[in-house]
Nucleic acid binder design. Structure first.
Length: 132
RNA sequence: CGAGAGGGUCAGGUGAUCGCGGGCGGCAUAUGCCGCCUGAGGAAAGUCCGAACUCCACAGAGCACGAUGCUGGGUAACGCCCAGGCAGGGUGACCUGACGGCAAGUGCAACAGAAAGCAGGGCGCCGGCGGGCCAUCCGGUCCGUCGGUAAGCGUGAAAGGGUGGUGUAAGAGACCACCGGCGGUCCAGGUGACUGGGCCGGCCAGGCAAACCCCAUCGGGAGCAAGACCAAGUAGGAAGGCGAGACCGGCAGCCGCCGGUCGCAGGGCUGCUCGUCCUGGCCUUCGGGUAGGUCGCUAGAGACGGCGGGCAACCGUCGUCCCAGAGAGAUGAUCACCGCCGCCGGUCUCCGGCGGUACAGAAUUCGGCUUAUAGAUCCUCUCGGGGG
RNA sequence: CGGGGCGUAGCGCAGCCCGGUAGCGCACUUGAAUGGGGUUCAAGUGGUCGGAGGUUCAAAUCCUCUCGCCCCGA
Protein backbone atom coordinates (compact mmCIF):
# COMPACT_ATOMS: atom_id res chain seq x y z
CA UNK A 1 0.00 0.00 0.00
CA UNK A 2 1.14 3.48 -0.81
CA UNK A 3 0.01 6.93 0.17
CA UNK A 4 1.03 9.75 -2.06
CA UNK A 5 2.35 12.66 -0.02
CA UNK A 6 2.83 15.00 -2.92
CA UNK A 7 1.67 15.42 -6.49
CA UNK A 8 4.30 13.64 -8.56
CA UNK A 9 6.05 10.31 -8.49
CA UNK A 10 6.47 8.51 -5.20
CA UNK A 11 10.16 7.65 -5.64
CA UNK A 12 11.62 11.12 -5.97
CA UNK A 13 9.70 13.00 -3.34
CA UNK A 14 11.50 15.50 -1.25
CA UNK A 15 11.73 15.74 2.49
CA UNK A 16 11.43 19.34 3.43
CA UNK A 17 10.76 20.87 6.79
CA UNK A 18 7.05 20.13 6.66
CA UNK A 19 7.94 16.45 6.99
CA UNK A 20 10.30 17.01 9.86
CA UNK A 21 9.66 16.94 13.57
CA UNK A 22 11.40 20.02 14.95
CA UNK A 23 9.99 20.96 18.31
CA UNK A 24 11.09 19.55 21.62
CA UNK A 25 7.50 19.24 22.82
CA UNK A 26 6.63 17.03 19.82
CA UNK A 27 9.49 14.66 20.58
CA UNK A 28 8.37 14.40 24.18
CA UNK A 29 4.76 13.73 23.15
CA UNK A 30 5.60 10.95 20.70
CA UNK A 31 7.95 9.17 23.07
CA UNK A 32 5.51 9.44 25.97
CA UNK A 33 2.20 8.60 24.27
CA UNK A 34 3.25 6.63 21.22
CA UNK A 35 4.18 3.00 20.75
CA UNK A 36 7.71 1.74 20.05
CA UNK A 37 9.37 -1.00 18.04
CA UNK A 38 13.04 -1.97 18.49
CA UNK A 39 15.79 -3.18 16.18
CA UNK A 40 19.52 -3.63 16.96
CA UNK A 41 20.31 -0.58 14.84
CA UNK A 42 17.47 1.74 15.91
CA UNK A 43 14.22 2.23 17.83
CA UNK A 44 11.01 3.60 16.27
CA UNK A 45 8.19 5.47 18.02
CA UNK A 46 4.89 6.43 16.39
CA UNK A 47 1.99 8.67 17.43
CA UNK A 48 -0.90 10.42 15.64
CA UNK A 49 -0.45 14.07 14.86
CA UNK A 50 -3.88 15.09 13.34
CA UNK A 51 -2.08 16.64 10.33
CA UNK A 52 -2.31 15.75 6.63
CA UNK A 53 1.42 14.86 6.50
CA UNK A 54 3.89 12.44 8.03
CA UNK A 55 6.63 13.92 10.19
CA UNK A 56 9.95 12.29 11.05
CA UNK A 57 12.27 13.13 13.94
CA UNK A 58 15.74 11.74 14.56
CA UNK A 59 17.57 11.31 17.85
CA UNK A 60 21.33 10.67 17.80
CA UNK A 61 22.84 11.02 21.22
CA UNK A 62 26.39 11.86 22.17
CA UNK A 63 26.98 8.23 23.04
CA UNK A 64 26.95 7.41 19.32
CA UNK A 65 30.15 9.29 18.56
CA UNK A 66 31.76 12.62 17.72
CA UNK A 67 30.07 15.41 15.79
CA UNK A 68 31.16 14.04 12.41
CA UNK A 69 29.83 10.57 13.19
CA UNK A 70 26.56 11.88 14.59
CA UNK A 71 25.93 14.08 11.58
CA UNK A 72 26.67 11.23 9.16
CA UNK A 73 24.30 8.89 10.98
CA UNK A 74 21.59 11.54 10.92
CA UNK A 75 21.99 12.15 7.20
CA UNK A 76 21.82 8.47 6.35
CA UNK A 77 18.76 8.01 8.54
CA UNK A 78 17.13 10.98 6.89
CA UNK A 79 17.90 9.60 3.43
CA UNK A 80 16.50 6.20 4.35
CA UNK A 81 13.33 7.77 5.77
CA UNK A 82 12.92 9.93 2.67
CA UNK A 83 12.97 6.86 0.42
CA UNK A 84 10.24 5.17 2.46
CA UNK A 85 8.12 8.17 3.30
CA UNK A 86 5.40 6.99 0.90
CA UNK A 87 5.00 3.70 2.80
CA UNK A 88 3.54 5.48 5.83
CA UNK A 89 -0.06 6.72 5.95
CA UNK A 90 -0.24 10.48 6.48
CA UNK A 91 -1.13 11.81 9.91
CA UNK A 92 1.62 10.20 11.99
CA UNK A 93 4.67 11.46 13.82
CA UNK A 94 7.64 9.06 13.83
CA UNK A 95 10.74 9.33 16.01
CA UNK A 96 13.83 7.25 15.23
CA UNK A 97 16.52 6.80 17.87
CA UNK A 98 19.91 5.61 16.65
CA UNK A 99 21.73 2.84 18.50
CA UNK A 100 25.49 2.44 18.70
CA UNK A 101 26.00 -0.38 16.07
CA UNK A 102 24.53 1.88 13.37
CA UNK A 103 27.93 3.56 13.04
CA UNK A 104 29.45 0.46 11.41
CA UNK A 105 26.35 -0.48 9.38
CA UNK A 106 26.20 -0.14 5.60
CA UNK A 107 23.41 1.95 4.11
CA UNK A 108 21.54 -1.12 2.81
CA UNK A 109 21.43 -2.51 6.35
CA UNK A 110 20.04 0.74 7.73
CA UNK A 111 17.41 0.88 4.99
CA UNK A 112 16.46 -2.75 5.64
CA UNK A 113 16.10 -2.16 9.35
CA UNK A 114 13.88 0.84 8.77
CA UNK A 115 11.72 -1.12 6.33
CA UNK A 116 11.18 -3.88 8.90
CA UNK A 117 10.20 -1.42 11.62
CA UNK A 118 7.82 0.43 9.32
CA UNK A 119 6.15 -2.83 8.27
CA UNK A 120 5.57 -3.75 11.91
CA UNK A 121 4.28 -0.29 12.72
CA UNK A 122 1.91 -0.16 9.73
CA UNK A 123 -0.39 -2.93 10.92
CA UNK A 124 -0.79 -1.22 14.31
CA UNK A 125 -1.48 2.07 12.56
CA UNK A 126 -4.18 0.44 10.44
CA UNK A 127 -5.90 -0.88 13.58
CA UNK A 128 -5.81 2.52 15.23
CA UNK A 129 -7.16 4.28 12.14
CA UNK A 130 -9.91 1.69 11.71
CA UNK A 131 -10.85 2.08 15.36
CA UNK A 132 -10.95 5.81 14.97
C1' C B 1 73.04 7.81 -4.39
C1' G B 2 72.25 7.56 0.99
C1' A B 3 71.14 10.05 5.60
C1' G B 4 69.25 14.53 7.43
C1' A B 5 67.68 20.15 8.47
C1' G B 6 64.33 24.30 7.42
C1' G B 7 60.05 26.28 4.84
C1' G B 8 55.64 26.35 1.44
C1' U B 9 51.21 24.27 -1.20
C1' C B 10 47.19 20.61 -1.74
C1' A B 11 43.63 17.73 1.26
C1' G B 12 41.53 12.57 -4.55
C1' G B 13 39.02 13.39 -9.48
C1' U B 14 34.95 12.58 -13.25
C1' G B 15 29.98 11.11 -14.45
C1' A B 16 24.77 9.48 -13.50
C1' U B 17 20.19 9.32 -10.42
C1' C B 18 17.72 11.29 -6.19
C1' G B 19 17.85 15.06 -2.27
C1' C B 20 18.83 19.51 1.65
C1' G B 21 19.91 25.05 3.71
C1' G B 22 20.18 30.25 1.96
C1' G B 23 19.52 34.41 -1.68
C1' C B 24 17.15 36.53 -6.11
C1' G B 25 13.22 36.42 -9.84
C1' G B 26 8.43 34.61 -11.63
C1' C B 27 3.51 32.18 -10.74
C1' A B 28 0.49 31.85 -6.83
C1' U B 29 -0.54 33.53 -1.85
C1' A B 30 -4.09 28.29 3.70
C1' U B 31 0.43 26.24 2.22
C1' G B 32 3.55 25.86 -1.92
C1' C B 33 5.67 25.21 -7.24
C1' C B 34 9.35 26.49 -11.14
C1' G B 35 14.09 28.70 -12.84
C1' C B 36 19.00 30.68 -11.79
C1' C B 37 23.03 31.48 -8.30
C1' U B 38 25.42 29.85 -3.94
C1' G B 39 26.80 26.48 0.22
C1' A B 40 32.76 23.56 5.60
C1' G B 41 38.39 23.50 7.44
C1' G B 42 43.68 23.66 7.85
C1' A B 43 42.77 22.63 11.76
C1' A B 44 35.81 24.60 11.38
C1' A B 45 38.47 20.92 17.12
C1' G B 46 40.38 21.95 22.34
C1' U B 47 38.40 26.61 24.45
C1' C B 48 44.45 28.16 26.32
C1' C B 49 45.25 33.68 25.39
C1' G B 50 44.17 38.56 22.89
C1' A B 51 40.56 41.85 20.71
C1' A B 52 35.99 43.69 18.17
C1' C B 53 30.81 44.10 19.53
C1' U B 54 26.68 44.41 23.37
C1' C B 55 24.86 45.40 28.22
C1' C B 56 25.90 46.86 33.33
C1' A B 57 26.02 52.94 36.17
C1' C B 58 30.75 55.87 29.99
C1' A B 59 33.54 52.60 34.99
C1' G B 60 37.93 56.93 39.18
C1' A B 61 41.95 56.15 43.31
C1' G B 62 44.45 52.75 46.73
C1' C B 63 44.95 47.69 48.53
C1' A B 64 44.06 42.70 47.56
C1' C B 65 43.98 39.14 43.50
C1' G B 66 45.48 37.33 38.71
C1' A B 67 48.65 37.24 34.41
C1' U B 68 53.28 38.26 31.98
C1' G B 69 58.92 38.37 32.65
C1' C B 70 66.58 38.84 28.19
C1' U B 71 66.71 43.23 24.32
C1' G B 72 64.71 45.87 20.11
C1' G B 73 60.77 45.92 16.68
C1' G B 74 55.65 44.42 14.48
C1' U B 75 50.40 44.70 15.70
C1' A B 76 43.85 47.00 17.18
C1' A B 77 45.80 43.79 21.04
C1' C B 78 48.25 39.48 22.98
C1' G B 79 50.92 34.91 26.97
C1' C B 80 51.48 35.76 19.43
C1' C B 81 55.14 36.87 15.38
C1' C B 82 60.09 38.75 13.50
C1' A B 83 65.22 40.11 14.30
C1' G B 84 69.17 40.10 17.79
C1' G B 85 71.86 38.74 22.56
C1' C B 86 73.10 34.90 26.08
C1' A B 87 72.95 29.63 27.66
C1' G B 88 72.54 24.40 26.20
C1' G B 89 72.56 20.38 22.23
C1' G B 90 74.30 18.68 17.24
C1' U B 91 80.32 17.01 12.83
C1' G B 92 76.87 20.33 10.26
C1' A B 93 72.36 22.55 7.95
C1' C B 94 69.97 23.89 12.34
C1' C B 95 67.25 23.01 16.98
C1' U B 96 65.78 24.06 22.17
C1' G B 97 65.14 27.65 26.34
C1' A B 98 58.92 30.29 32.07
C1' C B 99 65.95 33.65 30.18
C1' G B 100 64.25 39.73 36.01
C1' G B 101 65.90 39.35 41.40
C1' C B 102 68.30 34.23 46.41
C1' A B 103 76.04 39.65 48.07
C1' A B 104 66.32 42.56 50.24
C1' G B 105 64.01 39.36 53.89
C1' U B 106 61.71 34.51 55.50
C1' G B 107 62.02 29.40 54.45
C1' C B 108 63.57 24.15 52.40
C1' A B 109 67.24 19.81 51.66
C1' A B 110 65.00 12.63 53.14
C1' C B 111 68.99 8.86 53.43
C1' A B 112 74.19 8.60 53.97
C1' G B 113 78.03 11.23 56.39
C1' A B 114 82.25 13.49 61.76
C1' A B 115 80.04 17.75 59.71
C1' A B 116 74.55 20.49 55.22
C1' G B 117 74.47 26.64 55.58
C1' C B 118 77.79 28.22 59.45
C1' A B 119 80.93 25.92 59.03
C1' G B 120 82.66 21.05 60.62
C1' G B 121 87.32 17.12 63.21
C1' G B 122 85.66 10.27 62.55
C1' C B 123 90.23 8.00 60.39
C1' G B 124 94.64 10.58 59.41
C1' C B 125 98.96 14.30 59.86
C1' C B 126 101.74 17.42 63.53
C1' G B 127 103.12 19.35 68.46
C1' G B 128 103.04 19.57 74.12
C1' C B 129 102.39 16.62 78.69
C1' G B 130 101.98 11.84 81.47
C1' G B 131 102.81 6.56 81.46
C1' G B 132 104.43 1.46 79.55
C1' C B 133 108.11 -1.25 76.51
C1' C B 134 112.91 -1.42 73.66
C1' A B 135 117.77 0.97 73.61
C1' U B 136 124.62 2.51 76.34
C1' C B 137 123.28 7.17 73.85
C1' C B 138 120.85 9.79 69.62
C1' G B 139 116.03 8.06 69.84
C1' G B 140 112.00 4.53 68.34
C1' U B 141 107.16 2.50 69.33
C1' C B 142 102.30 1.95 71.91
C1' C B 143 98.40 3.98 75.16
C1' G B 144 95.98 8.17 77.42
C1' U B 145 95.16 13.37 77.46
C1' C B 146 95.35 18.63 75.80
C1' G B 147 95.83 21.36 71.39
C1' G B 148 96.89 22.66 65.96
C1' U B 149 95.28 21.41 60.92
C1' A B 150 91.82 21.23 56.40
C1' A B 151 96.60 18.64 52.12
C1' G B 152 94.79 12.97 52.07
C1' C B 153 90.60 8.71 53.13
C1' G B 154 85.45 8.12 52.99
C1' U B 155 79.67 9.83 52.50
C1' G B 156 76.60 12.66 49.44
C1' A B 157 73.08 15.79 44.32
C1' A B 158 76.08 19.39 46.83
C1' A B 159 81.91 19.35 51.61
C1' G B 160 82.85 26.56 49.96
C1' G B 161 87.92 27.92 43.66
C1' G B 162 91.99 25.05 40.17
C1' U B 163 97.38 24.20 39.03
C1' G B 164 102.32 25.20 40.58
C1' G B 165 105.33 27.39 44.27
C1' U B 166 106.79 30.07 48.99
C1' G B 167 105.98 28.89 53.81
C1' U B 168 105.27 25.66 58.29
C1' A B 169 105.85 21.26 63.71
C1' A B 170 102.04 19.72 60.14
C1' G B 171 99.16 22.72 57.21
C1' A B 172 96.01 26.49 55.16
C1' G B 173 94.80 32.44 49.80
C1' A B 174 98.62 32.83 55.32
C1' C B 175 101.54 34.74 50.93
C1' C B 176 102.98 34.73 45.39
C1' A B 177 102.31 33.67 39.85
C1' C B 178 98.86 32.12 36.11
C1' C B 179 93.86 30.57 35.04
C1' G B 180 88.55 30.56 36.19
C1' G B 181 84.72 33.22 38.68
C1' C B 182 82.85 37.89 41.48
C1' G B 183 82.39 43.24 42.63
C1' G B 184 83.75 48.34 41.41
C1' U B 185 85.51 51.74 37.82
C1' C B 186 87.21 53.49 32.98
C1' C B 187 87.60 53.03 27.51
C1' A B 188 85.67 51.20 22.71
C1' G B 189 81.42 49.08 19.71
C1' G B 190 75.97 48.63 19.75
C1' U B 191 69.18 52.05 20.09
C1' G B 192 69.55 47.98 23.61
C1' A B 193 70.17 43.03 25.74
C1' C B 194 75.33 42.45 25.54
C1' U B 195 80.44 41.96 23.70
C1' G B 196 85.88 43.15 23.78
C1' G B 197 89.78 45.37 26.65
C1' G B 198 92.57 48.22 30.79
C1' C B 199 93.02 49.20 36.10
C1' C B 200 91.74 48.31 41.25
C1' G B 201 89.78 45.27 45.15
C1' G B 202 89.09 40.85 47.63
C1' C B 203 90.35 35.54 47.69
C1' C B 204 84.84 33.24 47.47
C1' A B 205 80.21 35.88 49.19
C1' G B 206 76.63 27.64 47.58
C1' G B 207 71.63 25.66 45.34
C1' C B 208 66.14 26.07 45.02
C1' A B 209 61.97 31.81 43.43
C1' A B 210 57.41 25.95 38.02
C1' A B 211 59.17 27.83 47.67
C1' C B 212 56.76 32.26 50.20
C1' C B 213 58.21 36.69 48.29
C1' C B 214 60.50 41.47 45.97
C1' C B 215 60.68 44.50 41.40
C1' A B 216 58.59 46.12 36.57
C1' U B 217 54.38 46.07 33.19
C1' C B 218 49.21 44.95 32.20
C1' G B 219 44.10 43.84 33.79
C1' G B 220 36.37 47.23 35.74
C1' G B 221 32.65 42.96 35.28
C1' A B 222 29.80 39.77 32.33
C1' G B 223 29.08 37.44 27.90
C1' C B 224 25.40 36.67 21.06
C1' A B 225 21.40 31.97 25.87
C1' A B 226 25.37 39.38 25.16
C1' G B 227 21.48 42.65 23.83
C1' A B 228 17.02 45.17 21.16
C1' C B 229 11.92 44.87 19.47
C1' C B 230 7.02 42.52 18.64
C1' A B 231 3.20 39.01 20.08
C1' A B 232 0.99 35.99 23.87
C1' G B 233 0.31 35.50 29.03
C1' U B 234 0.50 35.40 34.87
C1' A B 235 -0.57 36.79 40.80
C1' G B 236 2.56 44.85 41.30
C1' G B 237 0.75 36.99 45.17
C1' A B 238 2.02 34.85 50.31
C1' A B 239 5.07 34.26 54.85
C1' G B 240 9.09 35.85 57.97
C1' G B 241 12.79 39.49 59.41
C1' C B 242 14.90 44.51 59.62
C1' G B 243 13.71 49.79 59.34
C1' A B 244 14.01 56.69 60.53
C1' G B 245 12.48 60.09 59.48
C1' A B 246 12.55 65.58 59.97
C1' C B 247 11.82 70.39 57.70
C1' C B 248 10.26 73.85 53.68
C1' G B 249 7.06 75.06 49.34
C1' G B 250 2.76 73.93 46.08
C1' C B 251 -2.07 71.16 45.17
C1' A B 252 -5.68 69.41 48.33
C1' G B 253 -7.73 71.72 52.54
C1' C B 254 -10.03 64.31 55.80
C1' C B 255 -6.85 60.15 53.82
C1' G B 256 -3.07 61.96 50.77
C1' C B 257 -0.02 63.62 46.13
C1' C B 258 4.21 66.42 43.85
C1' G B 259 9.00 69.10 44.22
C1' G B 260 13.37 70.45 47.18
C1' U B 261 17.09 70.22 51.50
C1' C B 262 19.30 67.41 55.44
C1' G B 263 19.71 62.61 57.30
C1' C B 264 19.14 57.21 57.07
C1' A B 265 18.84 52.41 54.77
C1' G B 266 19.73 49.17 50.75
C1' G B 267 22.07 48.17 46.16
C1' G B 268 25.73 48.99 42.48
C1' C B 269 27.64 41.08 38.88
C1' U B 270 34.92 38.21 42.95
C1' G B 271 36.72 40.84 48.05
C1' C B 272 38.08 45.58 51.29
C1' U B 273 38.47 51.18 51.94
C1' C B 274 37.31 55.84 49.72
C1' G B 275 34.89 58.48 45.94
C1' U B 276 30.69 58.47 42.87
C1' C B 277 25.90 56.83 41.06
C1' C B 278 20.94 54.62 41.52
C1' U B 279 16.57 53.39 44.38
C1' G B 280 12.91 55.15 48.49
C1' G B 281 11.16 50.99 51.94
C1' C B 282 14.70 46.88 51.86
C1' C B 283 16.29 41.65 52.51
C1' U B 284 15.35 36.26 52.69
C1' U B 285 12.21 32.12 51.60
C1' C B 286 7.95 30.03 49.14
C1' G B 287 4.80 30.50 44.94
C1' G B 288 3.18 32.14 39.57
C1' G B 289 4.48 33.09 34.16
C1' U B 290 7.90 32.49 29.85
C1' A B 291 10.47 26.88 25.49
C1' G B 292 6.51 31.90 19.67
C1' G B 293 8.59 35.41 15.92
C1' U B 294 11.94 39.44 13.95
C1' C B 295 16.67 41.80 14.40
C1' G B 296 21.75 41.15 16.18
C1' C B 297 23.82 37.71 11.49
C1' U B 298 27.75 38.15 8.32
C1' A B 299 31.58 43.76 3.64
C1' G B 300 35.57 42.37 7.28
C1' A B 301 41.97 44.88 11.62
C1' G B 302 38.45 40.96 4.29
C1' A B 303 40.61 37.95 -0.10
C1' C B 304 43.77 38.00 -4.50
C1' G B 305 47.39 40.44 -7.67
C1' G B 306 50.98 44.48 -8.97
C1' C B 307 54.38 48.32 -7.24
C1' G B 308 57.20 50.65 -3.22
C1' G B 309 59.61 50.66 1.99
C1' G B 310 61.85 47.18 5.60
C1' C B 311 67.11 41.80 7.01
C1' A B 312 62.24 40.13 8.61
C1' A B 313 57.53 40.07 11.15
C1' C B 314 54.88 43.80 8.75
C1' C B 315 53.37 48.47 6.56
C1' G B 316 51.86 51.95 2.54
C1' U B 317 49.48 52.47 -2.14
C1' C B 318 46.81 51.04 -6.67
C1' G B 319 43.57 47.62 -9.15
C1' U B 320 40.05 43.61 -9.09
C1' C B 321 36.50 40.65 -6.36
C1' C B 322 32.14 39.50 -2.84
C1' C B 323 33.29 34.39 -0.42
C1' A B 324 28.02 29.65 4.13
C1' G B 325 24.66 31.93 7.56
C1' A B 326 21.58 27.08 10.20
C1' G B 327 18.46 27.11 14.72
C1' A B 328 16.25 19.05 16.55
C1' G B 329 20.75 22.70 13.54
C1' A B 330 21.60 22.56 5.48
C1' U B 331 26.34 21.64 2.89
C1' G B 332 24.35 14.98 1.48
C1' A B 333 22.93 9.57 -0.14
C1' U B 334 23.63 5.57 -3.64
C1' C B 335 26.15 3.56 -7.90
C1' A B 336 30.01 3.29 -11.76
C1' C B 337 34.90 4.45 -13.67
C1' C B 338 39.80 6.44 -13.08
C1' G B 339 44.08 7.88 -9.53
C1' C B 340 47.30 6.18 -5.05
C1' C B 341 48.76 2.22 -1.39
C1' G B 342 48.80 -2.96 0.44
C1' C B 343 47.80 -8.35 -0.13
C1' C B 344 46.75 -12.68 -3.23
C1' G B 345 46.65 -15.33 -8.03
C1' G B 346 48.31 -15.73 -13.08
C1' U B 347 50.52 -17.40 -20.01
C1' C B 348 54.82 -11.75 -13.97
C1' U B 349 57.62 -4.21 -18.66
C1' C B 350 51.12 -6.39 -17.79
C1' C B 351 46.24 -8.48 -16.35
C1' G B 352 42.48 -9.99 -12.72
C1' G B 353 40.38 -10.22 -7.67
C1' C B 354 39.97 -8.36 -2.59
C1' G B 355 40.79 -4.56 0.97
C1' G B 356 42.17 0.42 2.33
C1' U B 357 42.23 5.90 0.94
C1' A B 358 43.55 10.46 7.01
C1' C B 359 42.20 13.98 11.00
C1' A B 360 37.77 15.88 11.16
C1' G B 361 31.70 19.34 10.47
C1' A B 362 30.93 26.38 10.61
C1' A B 363 27.00 28.33 15.01
C1' U B 364 28.52 36.36 16.93
C1' U B 365 33.09 37.64 14.29
C1' C B 366 38.36 38.21 13.83
C1' G B 367 44.16 37.65 15.39
C1' G B 368 47.11 33.76 17.61
C1' C B 369 48.49 29.27 20.41
C1' U B 370 47.94 24.05 21.25
C1' U B 371 46.43 19.28 19.78
C1' A B 372 44.83 15.41 15.68
C1' U B 373 46.13 14.03 10.64
C1' A B 374 46.39 8.77 5.08
C1' G B 375 49.23 10.76 1.79
C1' A B 376 50.96 13.85 -2.54
C1' U B 377 54.18 17.72 -4.20
C1' C B 378 57.69 22.01 -4.59
C1' C B 379 61.94 25.13 -2.96
C1' U B 380 66.50 26.03 -0.15
C1' C B 381 70.41 24.00 2.72
C1' U B 382 73.87 20.28 5.52
C1' C B 383 76.80 15.74 6.13
C1' G B 384 78.80 11.16 3.94
C1' G B 385 80.04 8.10 -0.47
C1' G B 386 80.88 7.66 -5.89
C1' G B 387 81.73 9.74 -10.94
C1' G B 388 83.17 13.81 -14.48
C1' C C 1 29.38 30.42 26.15
C1' G C 2 31.19 30.19 31.16
C1' G C 3 32.53 27.51 35.75
C1' G C 4 33.82 23.24 38.96
C1' G C 5 35.36 18.23 40.36
C1' C C 6 37.60 13.29 39.73
C1' G C 7 41.49 9.64 37.73
C1' U C 8 46.43 6.08 43.21
C1' A C 9 46.41 -2.38 44.39
C1' G C 10 40.78 -6.42 41.61
C1' C C 11 36.88 -2.65 44.21
C1' G C 12 35.98 1.81 47.42
C1' C C 13 39.13 5.64 49.28
C1' A C 14 43.60 8.44 52.16
C1' G C 15 48.31 10.73 51.01
C1' C C 16 49.05 16.27 47.16
C1' C C 17 47.94 22.35 50.18
C1' C C 18 53.70 22.59 52.90
C1' G C 19 58.24 17.68 47.38
C1' G C 20 62.19 12.63 50.14
C1' U C 21 58.70 6.30 53.88
C1' A C 22 53.00 5.15 48.64
C1' G C 23 48.93 3.84 53.41
C1' C C 24 43.55 2.06 55.15
C1' G C 25 39.14 -1.19 54.57
C1' C C 26 37.03 -5.19 51.61
C1' A C 27 38.93 -8.99 48.42
C1' C C 28 43.15 -12.86 47.39
C1' U C 29 47.12 -16.58 49.31
C1' U C 30 49.21 -19.38 53.45
C1' G C 31 49.01 -21.02 58.53
C1' A C 32 46.32 -21.79 63.44
C1' A C 33 41.73 -22.86 66.31
C1' U C 34 36.85 -26.78 64.21
C1' G C 35 34.97 -33.45 62.48
C1' G C 36 33.94 -29.76 58.12
C1' G C 37 32.24 -24.73 56.83
C1' G C 38 31.34 -19.74 58.46
C1' U C 39 33.56 -16.50 61.97
C1' U C 40 38.08 -14.99 64.53
C1' C C 41 43.51 -14.49 64.93
C1' A C 42 48.53 -14.24 62.70
C1' A C 43 51.64 -13.63 58.43
C1' G C 44 52.02 -12.46 53.27
C1' U C 45 51.24 -11.23 47.84
C1' G C 46 49.61 -7.28 44.82
C1' G C 47 50.20 -0.34 42.52
C1' U C 48 53.71 2.33 34.92
C1' C C 49 49.95 7.06 41.14
C1' G C 50 45.41 8.34 33.46
C1' G C 51 49.51 9.80 29.52
C1' A C 52 53.78 13.00 27.67
C1' G C 53 57.32 16.76 28.71
C1' G C 54 59.68 20.19 32.14
C1' U C 55 61.62 22.48 37.15
C1' U C 56 64.51 20.14 41.13
C1' C C 57 69.83 16.42 43.90
C1' A C 58 64.90 14.19 44.27
C1' A C 59 57.85 14.62 41.64
C1' A C 60 51.75 10.74 43.31
C1' U C 61 52.79 15.90 45.21
C1' C C 62 55.10 21.86 41.74
C1' C C 63 54.44 23.78 36.30
C1' U C 64 52.84 23.12 30.99
C1' C C 65 50.32 20.23 27.35
C1' U C 66 47.01 16.18 26.59
C1' C C 67 43.19 11.88 27.30
C1' G C 68 38.81 9.99 29.66
C1' C C 69 34.58 10.50 33.00
C1' C C 70 31.05 13.36 35.94
C1' C C 71 28.45 17.80 37.58
C1' C C 72 26.61 22.98 37.59
C1' G C 73 24.95 28.04 35.63
C1' A C 74 23.04 31.27 31.62
Amino acid sequence: MEWSQQPGGPGDIGMKRQHRLLRSADFARVRRQGRSWAHPLMVLWADRNELPVTRFGFVVSRRIGKAVVRNRVKRRLREAARRHLHEVPPGWDLVILARAPIVQARFAEIENALTQLLARARSWMAERMAAA
